[in-house]
Design a protein around this nucleic acid. Structure first.
Lengths: 178, 178
DNA sequence: TTTTCCATGTAACTCGTTACATGATTTC
DNA sequence: GAAATCATGTAACGAGTTACATGGAAAA
């Protein structure tokens, strides 16, 4: 609750700029797919909740005959809440576990060759994820030597994914020697 | 749904040995706290669901005047489901994102000194997590050169957390030069 | 003219969480 | 005699998912 990631995301985007739900959803889908899985219906519901809690406020706007938009902006208490969530988030390390560990615990239930082939598939996909991230352009300017927040997040993801791939490769070698 | 981690965990533990809910919960709480956050009430509810789906079956046992136990074991379709989930899990890389990235995207909203102090706190906790994992003893025997599944999961977590700490330290240095 | 885009939502469902209930039994 | 252990659960709530509804406007 104190560390709810969706709330942090929505408040953070609205702190940058007043926006309506559709706009937020488009932006998230197009640019933040690597950081969140927030779905459209979920976002609309979340915005309703945030409004009821008084963290955001809406004004209704209309352009020509287009559908009406509910344009949201942060209230004062919304700003306060944003900063609290942000501080919590920054100060905390990855909580508990990595998803991919669970399967590993039972891998002795499969014949070694199949394990190798399955983990090989994992390695292939990991490689693709990494290649994809490497293609993300780096923004220049702001914050020290040209590091926007998004770039930081990308660089962290790259570091973690590369380590994961290295670990996987070593483990596969290890398994192959049996 | 196909990759539901709680189901994989419960089926996997029951594949190893017939057990009742209390037993599963104790084991998870004592030994698997690093890999899952599954709570007791959730586990009991999940076992009910799995039984209704025909993936597990219960027999009621009693010892003396103790509370009755519902001892669960896998059915045939439960075993099949376990293997399917396991294969899916092993073949897939970490899905989408790391939790800790979200905060980073907004860190330009805080003064640099505060960011540094918050990320410093994150680094401290990360260090503690790592030290804790390093104290986990390694099992000998089985699977190649002495690697049970749990050991694999621990070694992967260690690799990822160490990379995270290294990345954090570099980023802190970087931020300090402003 | 059929599809895609704009813009917001609802309904039914599943899953998870916290807090509490129960009642005997071993341990302090 | 009080507290922790054994063992299973319920109730109320919060939040997420998929699938669907609506209805005009722009694009193919």
């Amino acid at each position: 609750m104190t560390t709810d990631p969706n709330t942090l995301l929505l408040l953070g985007l609205l702190k940058g700029q007043r926006q309506h739900g559709y706009q937020l959803n488009e932006f998230i889908e197009r640019n933040l797919g690597r950081f969140t899985t927030l779905k459209k219906a979920t976002a609309y519901a979340a915005l309703d909740r945030l409004e009821k809690k008084g963290l955001i406020e809406a004004t209704t706007e209309q352009e020509g005959n287009r559908p009406a938009r509910r344009v949201y902006g942060l209230t004062e208490s919304g700003e306060a809440q944003f900063f609290e969530l942000l501080r919590d988030h920054l100060a905390q390390p990855e909580p508990v576990a990595f998803y991919g560990d669970l399967g590993l615990m039972f891998l002795n239930q499969l014949p070694t060759e199949e394990t190798i082939s399955l983990l090989g598939e994992r390695a292939t996909q990991l490689g693709a994820q990494i290649a994809d991230l490497e293609r993300v352009p780096i923004h220049e300017g702001a914050l020290g030597r040209g590091l926007f927040g998004v770039d930081l997040a990308v660089s962290r993801q790259l570091a973690l994914l590369r380590t994961d791939l290295t670990w996987l490769t070593q483990t596969l070698n290890h398994l192959g020697q049996s």
